[in-house]
Design a protein around this nucleic acid. Structure first.
Length: 301
DNA sequence: ACTTTGACCTGTGCGC
DNA sequence: TGCGCACAGGTCAAAG
C-alpha cells in the first residue's frame, strides 16, 4: 500500500478534484471493506460539499460542510480513479450488475473491485478500487476526531516537529529490531515496509539492530538515531517530490504513475549490487515479523 | 507492558 | 496449460 508519500500524493489529487464540489450520489457495491461501512454512510455523504482533504498518518480525512469527516484508508491495494465528466458521458453508465462497476475499463479487473463510486455536481465520478479490501471507509463527526479509535493511538507525524529526542523517548527500553520499530505507527506514522528499508540503508544501520542500542544511557538519542530520523524524513520527502512510488497495484489518484521505484536503493533488489558510493556489497533479503527486509550487510552495521 | 504471530483478502508470478 | 505455493505497500487482535 501506499505509504505516507503515496497517500500524500492521493491527498493532493483528491483535494484538486473534490474540494468545493458537492457529492451528488454515492454508490456502494458492497457493505464493507476491512470493516463494515457505517449503516448510513452513503446518505451521510450525499448532498455534502467537500471543504478539505487532510492526511493523518496513512489515513485520508475528508471534511464535509456539516462537520462530518469521511475517513478513507487505502490498505494495501486501494486506489482512487478520477473519471472526468466527458469520460462519464462516454461510458454512459446504465444499469449495471450489483457487484460490477461500469468503469472497469479504467479501473481494471472488469470493475469487480470497484467498491465505492462518488458522483460530484460537475459530472465527474471518483471510483475507489481495492482488490484485497484491506482498506477502510468510515464517517465520524469532526469533534470526535481526537478519540476516533482508528486515530487515537497514532504517533507523531514525521514532518510535524518529530526529532531524534522524541524518537529516543519513544524507543525507551524497547529491544525489538529497529526495522520493526519503524513500522510501528506509535513510534512515527507513515513509514511502511519500503521506506523503512530505504531509510535504514541510507543511515548505514542494520535492520536487526535492537532499538534501544540507538538510545544513550541518559535517554538521549545517539548519532546513529539522529541520522536515522533525518534519513526517514529525507527519503519520504524525496518520494513525495516524485509523486509517490510505482508498485504493482498503486496508481496515483489521477491515473498517473509515480516513479520513485526507480530510486529504490535496496527494496526488492535482492542479489543486486549495493548502490551506495564505494560499497561493493550485495543486497540481501531477510524476513522480520513475516515481512521482507532488504539490506546491504556490507554498509549496514 | 511488552513482543510475536496469525488473520484479514485477492492477484500475480514462479517452479514443476 | 494447469496447479500449488510464496509473496505483496497495512493493521489489528490474540496469544505468548
Amino acid at each position: 500500500m501506499p505509504e505516507l508519500p503515496e497517500v500524500e500524493t492521493v491527498r493532493t489529487g483528491l483535494e484538486q478534484a473534490w474540494v468545493g464540489r458537492r457529492i451528488e450520489h454515492v454508490k456502494l457495491r458492497r457493505k464493507d471493506l476491512r470493516f463494515p461501512f457505517p449503516a448510513n454512510m452513503a446518505e451521510r455523504l450525499t448532498g455534502q460539499t467537500v471543504l478539505g482533504v487532510r492526511r493523518r498518518a496513512k489515513y485520508l480525512l475528508i471534511d464535509l460542510e456539516d462537520g462530518a469527516v469521511f475517513l478513507s484508508h487505502l490498505g494495501m491495494s486501494g486506489r482512487y480513479t478520477l473519471v472526468t465528466p466527458d469520460e462519464v458521458a462516454r461510458i454512459n453508465p446504465g444499469p449495471t450488475p450489483q457487484t460490477t462497476s461500469p468503469f472497469g475499463a479504467l479501473t481494471g479487473f472488469d470493475g469487480r473491485h470497484d467498491h465505492m463510486e462518488f458522483r460530484f455536481d460537475d459530472g465527474s465520478v471518483s471510483v475507489y478500487t481495492d482488490p484485497r479490501r484491506f482498506g477502510i471507509a468510515d464517517v465520524f463527526e469532526r469533534a470526535e476526531e481526537p478519540v476516533q479509535s482508528l486515530l487515537e493511538h497514532l504517533g507523531p507525524e514525521p514532518f510535524d516537529g518529530w526529532n531524534a529526542s522524541i524518537a529516543a523517548k519513544r524507543i525507551g527500553k524497547k529491544r525489538s529490531a529497529i526495522k520493526i520499530t519503524l513500522l510501528d505507527q506509535r513510534f512515527v506514522v507513515g513509514v511502511g515496509n519500503i521506506y523503512a528499508c530505504e531509510a535504514l540503508h541510507r543511515s548505514g544501520i542494520a535492520p536487526t539492530t535492537p532499538s534501544n542500542t540507538l538510545v544513550k544511557k541518559n535517554g538521549g538519542p545517539t548519532k546513529r538515531l539522529e541520522r536515522l530520523v533525518n534519513e526517514v524524513k529525507s527519503v519520504l520527502n524525496a518520494a513525495i517530490a516524485v509523486g509517490g512510488s510505482t508498485l504493482n497495484d498503486f496508481a496515483a489518484v489521477d491515473g498517473t504513475l509515480g516513479y520513485f521505484g526507480h530510486h529504490f536503493q535496496v527494496y526488492d533488489r535482492e542479489d543486486g549490487p549495493c548502490l551506495k558510493d564505494g560499497c561493493s556489497g550485495t543486497i540481501e533479503r531477510i524476513v522480520q515479523s513475516n515481512r521482507s527486509t532488504f539490506l546491504c550487510p556490507r554498509c549496514q552495521k
